[in-house]
Design a protein around this nucleic acid. Structure first.
Lengths: 142, 142
DNA sequence: TACATTTAGTTGTTATAGCAACTATTGGAA
DNA sequence: TTCCAATAGTTGCTATAACAACTAAATGTA
């Protein structure tokens, strides 16, 4: 077969992902928010009080990642980690005043980012890409 | 606008990338090769003796990453880092016997991986995805 | 009730990614 | 030839990602 690096769609996908991440990282930097930390905040801005475990399920990430990102966000003063009364193993994430206010500034940036990314790409093209990516996901799942 | 997480194509792209990476990571694990380390090896299997800098340019990665991955691959005995005679700042990467032989086992795995990923996806669809991803890359570049 | 199992979260480790600041070397210009 | 600028690589740091092994708490069953 003899595929070259340029033939691997996975490599191209990975490069694209890194470029998008780097782009939004720069936009968020002034707000002291890293890209994946921002995803946690986006969930909480809609509705806070979720447990770390619930956030992990929603973001399809390992609970270790969420725990460390939540700890970092708490350090920054954007949220508080409150043990649940009924299940004292669980930590529920609640926005602080500062974290809550941050949403008003950062939400528009996230949406601008999305629009910048899809600029010049039609709804049909985007849907097609979603379909193909979904197929790839299925291809590598049991 | 009020986009939900599911609306962000960047998030879907990122999740897909992670799933593909995790899949190939598992396939390569028995050979003591991590996915990105494998990319360096793939270049060297085609032609070795490139400098770390040349590898970094080819893989569009920071030279720090390449330096650390090359150090790791050297630790594993897959390559040697040889200072260039004419420019003693440069380190050229040469395959060891072991690293060279590894290529015969791992190259087919990489190609099988690619075929697994694109299974059930037509050439036209794949080309269209490439075109759209390229457009996204341009959208986030200066 | 007592004990085994499951669950939520933490700690430690490895890999990737990229920035900043540094050393060593090379190359270019006065 | 001397000195400044550019280049190759390293070290240190922060963030993401996920696995393994652990603690603490809750649940289920004998």
């Amino acid at each position: 077969m003899d595929l070259r690096l340029e033939d691997y769609i996975s490599i191209f996908l990975h490069e694209t992902d890194l470029m998008l991440t780097s782009f939004i990282k720069e936009k968020l930097a002034p707000y002291n928010l890293a890209p994946e930390q921002n995803l946690i905040m986006m969930i909480l801005w809609e509705q806070d009080g979720y447990t770390q475990n619930e956030i992990a399920a929603r973001l399809k990430k390992d609970k270790t990642n969420i725990a460390r990102m939540a700890a970092s966000l708490a350090d920054k003063g954007f949220l508080e980690r409150v043990p649940d009364d009924l299940d004292r193993r669980s930590l529920r994430l609640y926005l602080t005043e500062e974290g809550s206010e941050l949403g008003e500034k950062v939400t528009p940036i996230a949406e601008e980012f999305h629009h910048a990314v899809v600029q010049g790409i039609s709804e049909e093209e985007l849907q097609m890409v979603r379909t193909v990516l979904k197929k790839m996901q299925q291809n590598v799942s049991k």
